[in-house]
């Protein structure tokens, strides 16, 4: 009886350990360009579009290259070749997932966080049409 409980407990502990290891080895991380540059790993970088720098949008070739400023205020070029990109000018935050390759950040996924009409109409900045 005792031994069976022990075995069960050990099995659970082992399962949990494997889960943690697997999760941590598969997890990506939020980082900045500097970190991406140093490690070369696939990371999430969150930032804003830098409008004054040159941007190339070629939807017909599925090629986008633009400059982004990360949370540490470093500006770096981001390249995206995996399909269409939403409207950058609408996005208040950009979440790019990708790797640093040859002096630019090659994104595999881009999420645009838009102040969409779908969420919050009550955000403080928005004014009400008076009349």
């Amino acid at each position: 009886m005792k031994t069976r409980n022990l075995i069960l407990l050990l099995a659970l502990a082992a399962g949990f350990a494997i889960l943690l290891v697997d999760l941590l080895s598969n997890a990506s991380e939020f980082a900045d360009f500097k970190h991406a540059q140093e490690t070369g790993r696939e990371v999430h970088v969150i930032g804003r579009w830098v409008r004054r720098e040159e941007a190339v949008f070629k939807p017909e070739e599925s090629y986008y290259r633009f400059y982004m400023q990360d949370t540490m205020n470093q500006v770096a070029p981001v390249v995206y070749r995996r399909g269409t990109l939403g409207d950058l000018s609408q996005a208040e935050k950009i979440d790019v997932v990708g790797k640093w390759e040859n002096g630019e950040f090659v994104a595999s996924k881009i999420h645009l966080k838009c102040p969409s009409k779908y969420n919050d109409a009550a955000s403080p900045g928005k004014s009400i049409p008076h009349e």
Binding site: A27, S28, E29, F30, V97, K109
Partner: peptide, 21 residues
């Protein structure tokens, strides 16, 4: 992340991760 100050994000292929488990 908030508690331990880490900067972890879900696995990039999160659907596959969930499937495997």
């Amino acid at each position: 992340n908030k508690i331990f100050g880490t900067r972890l994000a879900a696995p990039s292929e999160v659907q596959y991760f969930y499937y495997r488990w």
